[in-house]
Amino acid sequence: MSDLATVLVGRLAASFDEARDPVRAVGAAAYMRDLFPFLGLTSPVRRARARLALAGLPRPTEAELRDVALACWSRDEREFQQFACDYLAANIKVPGPAFLDTVAELIVTKSWWDTVDPLAAHVAGGLVRRHPETVTTMDEWSRADDMWLIRTAILHQLTYGAATDADRLFGYCAAQAGHRDFFIRKAIGWALRQHARTDPAAVRAFLAAQSDRLSPLSRREAAKHLSPIRP
């Protein structure tokens, strides 16, 4: 592990431990179905403590980013993985296209929505925006066996707004319309709902064309903010 990763994760451990809240930790773990132990830090406290740990440290290299992320993923408490997601997003200009391999490793390890979603929208999405050729990796993930990679592909354009590749988004959603897992159905609805902010007519047309294939959850989420069509 690099010196930067060793120092940073050591500082985080000390800073987080000072602010741990055992009572809140029990509730946080229960909210996440007891999949992970928690220190009991609220998001504002975690981020404030992270800023203290980061003070005076240099911007990481790509290799150091990977070391920090993997070191955080090796820790038991979920706040370390949540920090790593923030850290990667804040340094998204550093890594090159090959860093998607590291992102995939994080996505399929200790997987749950609280890490997968920021990795999708802010890390994978940020890398694809900066390195457009890597969109083919999203195409591969959209057909993957791992549902969290599929969810990432569907959500990676969540912050793109008018720059969204609508054909690709609709293609991913149509291909996975019949997926049985809640998290994929929810992602389809979420991604479509977000794109409806930019092009509501296109989303409405897609919903009409795919009405027999999309789950009720996906349709309901996608249409949540669409105004009804007047006769």
Rank of each mutant, 00 (worst) to 15 (best):
W112Y: 01
L88H: 02
D34H: 15
T134K: 13
H131A: 03
H122S: 13
A48D: 12
C72P: 02
T136W: 06
G96Q: 04
R46Q: 06
R75G: 14
T137Y: 12
F99G: 00
K110R: 14
A69S: 08
R78Q: 13
D76S: 15
A50V: 03
G96M: 06
W112G: 00
P132I: 04
T61N: 06
P44K: 07
D34I: 11
R59G: 14
I92Y: 03
P97A: 15
V103N: 05
D76F: 11
G125M: 02
H122A: 13
A63W: 09
P37W: 11
P58A: 14
G56V: 08
F38M: 13
A63V: 12
F83C: 07
V116M: 00
D117H: 00
V123C: 10
A98H: 11
L52Q: 13
L52E: 15
D76W: 07
R75S: 13
G126D: 03
A98V: 05
A53T: 08
I107V: 12
V94L: 06
Y87G: 01
C85Y: 00
V103R: 04
E64N: 08
R59Q: 13
T102I: 14
S142I: 04
D114F: 03
D114H: 01
P132T: 08
Q82L: 15
A55E: 15
Q82Y: 13
H131G: 05
L119H: 02
V116I: 01
A50F: 07
T134D: 03
T42C: 11
A124Q: 02
R46M: 15
A71N: 06
H131L: 02
Q82G: 15
M138T: 01
I150A: 02
F80G: 02
T61Y: 07
A144R: 03
Y87W: 10
T109Y: 10
A104E: 14
F99M: 00
D101V: 00
P58K: 09
M147P: 08
P60F: 04
L127Q: 02
R66G: 05
T102V: 15
T152C: 04
L106K: 05
R49T: 06
T42N: 09
A50N: 03
M147Y: 13
P58I: 11
D145M: 11
T102M: 08
D86N: 08
A55G: 13
L88V: 02
V68F: 07
E140C: 10
L65Y: 03
A53M: 14
P132D: 07
S142W: 10
L35V: 10
T134M: 11
E62M: 04
D67Y: 05
T136R: 14
L35K: 12
E64L: 07
D146V: 09
A90V: 05
D146S: 10
A63D: 11
V68N: 01
P44H: 07
L149Q: 01
P132H: 04
E62S: 12
H131F: 02
G56L: 12
P37S: 09
A120H: 01
A124P: 04
L127V: 04
